[in-house]
Design a protein around this nucleic acid. Structure first.
Length: 220
DNA sequence: ATCCCGAGGG
DNA sequence: CCCTCTGGAT
């Protein structure tokens, strides 16, 4: 199988055109997880694994009212917490992670959400994807979030060939100046959520159709 | 590689 | 029924 690749400058140019088009489609992409602080965003993001933002937003208001600070969540009664977040799926894992994470934030970081990648992924239940959400949205640091949507869109647009999220992140990092990381990855995400759907991509209304080598044909 | 797990769409 | 939804830990 030959893997003849274009010079990366060509990929850069293509991604730049895609980014410009998406900028018109989505002038100001917004984070769709409701939150009022870095801590609330962290909790919401942990809950969002394999679950829609809409469902998370349905659960978090009463959750944040009941557990107001990291120290309160750290002391939560596990079965009760499980019931409060049940509808987000994976609730036993998520409840365990949330309590452990709240303990770590309380004990090691004085109830303040840390703002480096290394510290963030040291927290239970926090991987690279979650950490990048926090860095980009709560702390305005350049970050590329590679979730299921970004991975799918990047592959279909021919911006990466990898299935490994970390490698997809690296590929996109190399194709973009840091100043554009956060906004572009957020637009790719929303494009995946609303247009480039997993099962039924809306190619007829897709604004970057002309840049897409995949169109509706290919395999992933 | 496998497990966790509910809800909604097709 | 099957697939998908902002993954992470073992």
């Amino acid at each position: 199988m030959t893997t003849k690749s274009l010079p990366s400058s060509d990929y850069r140019k293509r991604l730049r055109e895609i980014a410009k088009t998406l900028q018109h489609t989505m002038p100001s992409p917004k984070m769709e997880l409701d939150h009022r602080s870095p801590w609330e965003l962290l909790v919401a993001t942990i809950l969002s694994a394999q679950c829609t933002d809409q469902r998370v937003n349905q659960v978090t208001p009463s959750l944040f009212q009941h557990y107001r600070r990291p120290a309160e969540l750290a002391a939560a009664h596990l079965p009760e917490l499980e019931q409060r977040i049940r509808s987000t799926g994976f609730f036993k894992n998520k409840a365990k992670h949330l309590v452990a994470c709240a303990k770590a934030v309380t004990e090691h970081f004085s109830e303040q959400v840390p703002h480096t990648m290394e510290e963030l992924i040291s927290l239970p239940g926090v991987g690279r994807k979650t950490a990048n959400v926090i860095l980009g949205t709560a702390f305005s640091q350049p970050s590329i979030v590679v979730d299921t949507h970004v991975k799918r869109v990047a592959k279909r647009l021919g911006l990466t060939r990898s299935d490994n999220p970390d490698l997809v992140e690296q590929d996109l990092q190399q194709l973009l100046p840091k100043s554009q990381w956060t906004a572009v990855s957020q637009r790719l995400l929303l494009h995946g959520r609303y247009v480039c759907l997993a099962r039924k991509p809306q190619c007829a209304t897709c604004s970057v159709y002309r840049h897409c080598p995949w169109k509706e044909k290919g395999l992933q």
